[in-house]
Amino acid sequence: MAKKRGTGMAAVSYPIGMHLGGDPTGALVHATSGGNFVVAMSSVDLGQGLKTVMAQIAAEALGVPLDTVIIDTGDTDTGPHCSGTGASRTTHRAGNAVIAAAKEARSAMLDVAAEMLEVSAADLETDGKGNIHVAGVEEKSVSVAETVQAGTFQFGKTIAGRGLFLVPKSPQDPETGESDPHSTQAHACTVAEVEVDTESGEVEVLSLKSAYEIGRQINPELVKGQIVGGAWMAIGHTLCETTAPYYPTTEHAPLDFLNYGMTGVAEMPEVECELLEFPSPSGPFGAKGVGEMVANSPIPAIVNAINNALDLDISDIPVTPEVILRALDAQAAGAD
């Protein structure tokens, strides 16, 4: 009987937003005479989809079509301050800054449309498809593009807005630790199923099933991408990844990918996930954040599953085959 199966679970929460506060991020929005809305920022997209998510937030808050929104980011001359991509802060901080800027630009846009239609700006609505109309009277309408043109050439008005989101500093009390450490919490729970080869010590993760609660999802496709990518990273962290395989010695430190164990494509199991949405009042359109937490519940779930399969007590990662074989030897010795 060389193969043993086990299951394990883990549940986590994750603090969203830069710990201790004091981390401003800004955005500037303006309409171009070519018909686009440019959002200038100096935030960084690492591949998680910052530009996509900010475009969605800007389009929604402006009430204009998504494809007219340009995200111009990554330039410290043209974009306002950003405290960086990290700490699961970007969707929350930059998202709130973009909303503030977009709201101001929207109100400038509606002021121009109101003059064009000779109504009060308060009576105007956008359809998100490129039109502005009087609430309840769809025929009484003007397009966003015409409004921008009229603002520029007829009324001499800039359609633009500013946003800067800043959470005040909240240092931790050195004695008690009292502080406002985060802006909201996201949650996750994972069940892992594993099969362990007791001869080779190798672990196969058979499945990872998780539920996530991350507030409102701005973009479910990108959220899923983070969860699947994080599940893979978690398997690597749990089973093989380290720059110090014989910690605390510095021996056998890897110099390249061939010797730095990352999980191979063939070791990737099915990943199932379900999303719950408890919109956060502090987040942009109720969003929390997801990028950083995605390895946190799978790692302990997998180790708990290994312990469950083998009736072991492993408490350190990574759980390499060597670790498992030594633990099984110790278990056998103890049983004698």
Partner: peptide
């Protein structure tokens, strides 16, 4: 919470329950 702020956005219970349903627990 231990950092002396009240919890106001909890959803751990629901997240665990959803995972139980998803995994047949």
């Amino acid at each position: 919470k231990a950092h002396r702020r009240e919890v106001w956005d909890a959803a751990l219970v629901e997240t665990i329950q959803a995972t139980a349903r998803l995994s047949g627990k």
